[in-house]
């Protein structure tokens, strides 16, 4: 009996609890929004803006501290964009791809590292914004819009000629691609983050001490990789649109 009592004592500290599909709903007019997602996304945005302002407030030729760190981040993003878009075209797309990477990365790591469970909400729980399908779909749709914009602004309506080149038979597949791209982007990110949080949640529920740590480390790893993949694929899609659906790869 005492052992059981001890167990209930441990379980009374609910550090993790499985809640899937429960939301902290806010009503705005006729629309409902997921409050917990927006709150964490605001925190993420605030963190990014604060770090950026702190880094660029007093720019020195010899960087130090936060400026050095953010310059490292910027160089990483620039290299990422450059490797996807090429030396000539990458500059205007650095902000979009970089913000994708930073937002997803900080969201994922924030969801994995910050013990959100300690903050009580009326319903639902605070977690990474990327834990919600709305966020990932929003980002994926923006990526689609971005590559359409890239193609149209570069080639005008001639961009759509790329759909029937080199042979028109591929037209349905190419149209289909425009739907599968955002779908795969959003579901890959969403699935990975949700799966990671669920696995960690289940493990914490079963064995609250030490055992979930390797999984959490793995979660951090996958989170970082997912952010990188999302940004890299966005870059690749934009590059494809700029180059013209693949046939001028070396042009």
């Amino acid at each position: 009996m005492e052992i059981l009592d001890g167990l209930t004592v441990i379980n009374s500290f609910t550090l993790a609890e499985l809640e899937v599909g429960e939301h902290f709903l806010w009503k705005i007019g006729n629309f409902s929004v997921h409050g917990q997602v927006l709150i964490t996304s605001w925190l993420v945005i605030g963190l990014l803006v604060l770090a950026s302002v702190a880094a660029s407030q007093n720019i020195q030729r010899i960087p130090s501290g936060i400026q050095n760190f953010m310059e490292y981040a910027l160089e990483f993003i620039r290299d990422l964009a450059k490797s996807q878009l090429g030396e000539k075209e990458y500059r205007p797309w650095v902000p979009f791809i970089g913000t994708l990477f930073l937002f997803i990365f900080v969201s994922n790591w924030g969801g994995a590292l910050v013990p959100w469970k300690l903050i009580e909400l009326p319903s639902g729980e605070l977690a990474a914004p990327t834990n919600d399908i709305n966020t990932t779909v929003a980002l994926a749709l923006l990526t689609s819009l971005a590559y359409f914009y890239a193609g149209l602004s570069k080639k005008g309506l001639g961009y759509f000629k790329g759909y029937v080149e080199p042979i028109p038979i591929l037209l349905p597949i190419k149209v289909l691609e425009d739907f599968t791209k955002p779908l795969s982007l959003s579901f890959r990110l969403f699935g990975n983050i949700v799966a990671d949080e669920l696995v960690v949640g289940v493990f914490v529920l079963l064995v609250p001490l030490f055992v979930p740590l390797p999984l959490m480390a793995l979660g951090l790893f996958t989170s970082a990789i997912q952010a990188l993949i999302f940004a890299t694929l966005a870059g690749a899609y934009i590059h494809e649109a700029l180059e013209g659906h693949g046939e001028e790869e070396h042009g």
Partner: peptide, 8 residues
């Protein structure tokens, strides 16, 4: 729901 456009 409306989270999507807001997030975008």
């Amino acid at each position: 729901d409306a989270t999507l456009p807001i997030m975008a």
